[in-house]
Amino acid sequence: MKLAYTTADFDRISAFLHRSTGILLTKENDRMVYARLAARVIDLGLDSFAAYIDQALGPAAIEERDRLVSALTTNTTHFYRESYHFDFLETEVLPGLIQRARSGERIRIWSAGCSTGEEPYSLAMCLLNAFPDVGNHDLKILATDIDRDALARATAATYGANSIREIPKPFLDRFFDHVQTTEQYTPKPTVRSLVTYRQLNLIGDWPFRGLFDVIFCRNVAIYMDAETQEQIWTGFCGALHPGGHLFIGHSERMSQSLRSSFTAVGNTIYRREP
Rank of each mutant, 00 (worst) to 15 (best):
P170W: 08
S20D: 11
R198P: 01
L240R: 01
T76F: 10
Y5F: 15
C114L: 13
A152K: 13
W110V: 11
L94T: 07
I203G: 07
P95A: 10
A112P: 04
D225L: 06
E92C: 04
N162Q: 11
P132A: 07
T144R: 04
F16P: 02
P132L: 06
Y270I: 07
L37F: 09
G96R: 09
L139G: 01
C237W: 01
A161S: 09
S193Q: 15
L172R: 07
F212W: 05
Y5C: 04
A156C: 04
A56Y: 10
T158C: 13
D177G: 01
S261M: 14
F176Y: 11
C217M: 10
S70D: 15
Y223V: 06
L258M: 12
N219P: 04
R100Y: 00
S122H: 11
W206K: 05
D213M: 02
E230R: 15
M125A: 11
R174H: 12
D149W: 00
L89W: 09
L17C: 09
T158G: 08
L123A: 07
A38I: 02
T76N: 07
R19T: 10
Y52R: 08
F10G: 03
G45V: 05
F16H: 11
G104A: 11
M254Q: 15
I269Q: 07
G117Y: 12
S115P: 11
P170F: 10
R67I: 05
R148W: 00
L142W: 05
V33A: 05
V195N: 06
T77W: 11
T144G: 05
G117N: 13
D11L: 12
T116R: 14
Q229T: 05
T26A: 13
I98L: 14
R259V: 15
H78Q: 09
R148S: 13
K169L: 06
L94C: 09
T76G: 02
S48K: 02
Y84P: 00
F216W: 13
I167M: 03
S48W: 08
Q180N: 04
Y159K: 06
D213Y: 03
W110A: 05
T74E: 01
E90T: 15
Q99R: 15
T182D: 09
A39E: 08
H245N: 09
A4S: 13
E63P: 01
T234R: 13
P59H: 04
A39F: 10
N219G: 08
G238N: 04
P95I: 12
T186V: 11
H78T: 00
Y270R: 10
R81S: 05
D43L: 08
F10T: 03
C237F: 00
T186Y: 03
Y5A: 01
R31C: 02
N267P: 03
I53D: 06
Y223L: 07
K2V: 10
N267K: 11
E82I: 02
L46N: 04
F88P: 02
N29M: 08
D47C: 04
E92D: 15
N129K: 15
Y34N: 05
L211C: 03
E63S: 14
P274G: 14
K188N: 11
D213F: 02
T21Y: 12
E63I: 00
A226K: 15
T21D: 00
N136F: 09
E273T: 14
L246S: 10
H78P: 01
T116V: 14
F10C: 05
D213Q: 08
I109F: 03
L44D: 06
F216H: 12
R81M: 04
F212Q: 03
H78I: 00
E92M: 12
